[in-house]
Amino acid sequence: MTAIEDFGGWLRDFEAQALRRAERGDPAWEAGARLDPAVVRSMQRFQVGEGSDGRILIAKAVDAADPDYTAAIRLFVAEEQNHARLLERLLAAAGEPTIAGHWSDAVFRRLRRSLGLRLELMVLMVAEVIALPYYGAIRDGIDDPLAAEVAARILADEERHVPFHCDRLRASFTDLTPATRAVAVAGWWAITAGATAVVLYDHGKALTSLGTTRRHFAGRVATHFHRATTHVRGPRPATSRRPAPAAGTIRRPDTGRAYAHM
């Protein structure tokens, strides 16, 4: 994988976010939470998916021989593990347990671990773009302040994770011919469609209770994924150009480049 992106900015961003989390502290768990049973089951399954130790991903990042990227990946994994902790504490606040595992997460992890870094990130990105409308639906549709706050915190992290992974994937896609890139993206869309169908089957009742239809959720996933693949396949902006971000965009750290808000 060709290292053409400067991940020093991302490393500083992850470090700054870790300090902000420490200063902010946890939500007020003592307030308790009241969750619809369908939302409880859904959160239990997402909590399992957020709890990976990331050993294999980190090892692949080490093999890529980019110290800044490897350090950023370690902090990314720590953020994902914090998401699992937040969901665990939220479930506990509602008087609900976590679960040991779920078949969909087991399949997803087995697929990721059998691949190289580029393909693992492509599969990981599928989970990231699905997480965006999922946590957005909880934040905006749930009738519980504590759950809404937890979802908002996780969503803010996921909105940074997508462009972070896009930067690395764009660097790796420069090694591919146009035809290979087209085939890779077509397969990527197929995986995303399949994963979305699984989520709609497993979490449809929860989404309905949050006021989100299956059609709307699938459409949001497609929109997020289209933006991500456009970013990955697009030309690498000149590092000397620092355009001001348009309305509704997120500025990627220290690069001066903007990424469409997910």
Rank of each mutant, 00 (worst) to 15 (best):
F164D: 01
R227G: 13
A31V: 13
D26K: 06
A3Q: 10
V126W: 00
D167A: 11
R252Y: 03
R241V: 14
R215P: 08
F76Y: 15
Y135W: 10
Y201E: 14
G194T: 13
G136L: 00
D254N: 13
A238R: 13
A184I: 03
A137T: 07
G211F: 00
H83L: 02
S172C: 12
D140Q: 07
R242L: 08
A182N: 03
M1E: 11
G141M: 03
L57K: 08
S104K: 00
A151P: 05
R85K: 08
A152V: 04
T2S: 15
Y201K: 15
W29D: 02
V39Y: 06
V48T: 08
G248S: 04
P253D: 02
A246N: 09
R41P: 07
R236H: 12
E30R: 14
Y134T: 05
V199K: 11
D144E: 02
E79H: 12
L200H: 05
T212D: 04
H216P: 01
Y69F: 15
L210P: 08
A92W: 04
P243G: 12
R21E: 12
P133R: 04
A28W: 12
A65H: 15
A260N: 12
A195G: 02
T239S: 14
E149S: 03
P235Y: 10
Q81F: 10
L132M: 06
G136W: 00
P27L: 05
A148M: 02
L35M: 07
I138C: 03
T230S: 14
L75E: 03
R257S: 12
D144Q: 01
L86K: 08
F217H: 07
L155E: 06
T212W: 09
V77A: 05
P253M: 08
G219H: 04
T177G: 07
R181M: 04
S172N: 13
R113M: 03
R168N: 02
L121Q: 04
A137R: 01
R153E: 09
I138R: 01
E30N: 09
R34P: 02
P245C: 15
Y134Q: 04
V198T: 14
E80S: 05
H102E: 12
G101L: 10
A65R: 15
V48P: 06
D26F: 01
E96T: 00
A147C: 03
D53R: 14
A38E: 13
A218M: 09
E128A: 02
L132G: 04
M1A: 09
F225S: 11
V123S: 06
R74I: 02
R41S: 15
E30L: 10
I191K: 11
A93M: 01
Y201S: 11
H224D: 11
M43P: 03
V107N: 08
